[in-house]
């Protein structure tokens, strides 16, 4: 098992992280340790265990289609770094 610096840079980019060269090496090492720990699980025989997306044993947790307006939308907007009127304001993202 190995994780290249290129892998680390790609993961960082996908996570919108700007890493220095030192950090790439630092996190690369840490990621490798995590992956190695997970790899230990592979030594277990799980052939009789069906793959599952959830361990809670729940299904169909549903709510009725009844509107319940949230009455403090302004508090949500107040969390935004920038706003303009009722809008969230973000850097230009035009294609």
């Amino acid at each position: 098992m190995a994780i290249s610096e290129e892998d680390v840079r790609k993961i960082a980019k996908l996570a919108r992280l700007d890493l220095s060269e030192d950090e790439v090496r630092l996190y690369g090492g840490q990621l490798l340790k995590i992956i190695e720990s997970m790899a230990e699980l592979e030594s277990l025989d799980a052939s009789s265990v069906p793959p599952t997306a959830s361990v809670l044993g729940l299904a169909n947790v549903l709510r009725e289609d009844e509107p319940r307006p949230f009455d403090d939308g302004d508090a949500l907007l107040a969390n935004a770094p920038e706003r303009e009127g009722p809008y969230y304001k973000v850097p230009k993202v035009l294609e």
Binding site: R63, E66, P67, R68, P69, F70, G73, L76, L77, G85, P86, Y87, Y88
Partner: peptide, 17 residues
């Protein structure tokens, strides 16, 4: 439980956490 009737309404009036 936010309403889906927000088209054409004031922005961010059908929002919640």
């Amino acid at each position: 439980a936010c309403g889906t009737d927000g088209f054409g309404e004031t922005a961010n009036t059908r929002v919640c956490p």
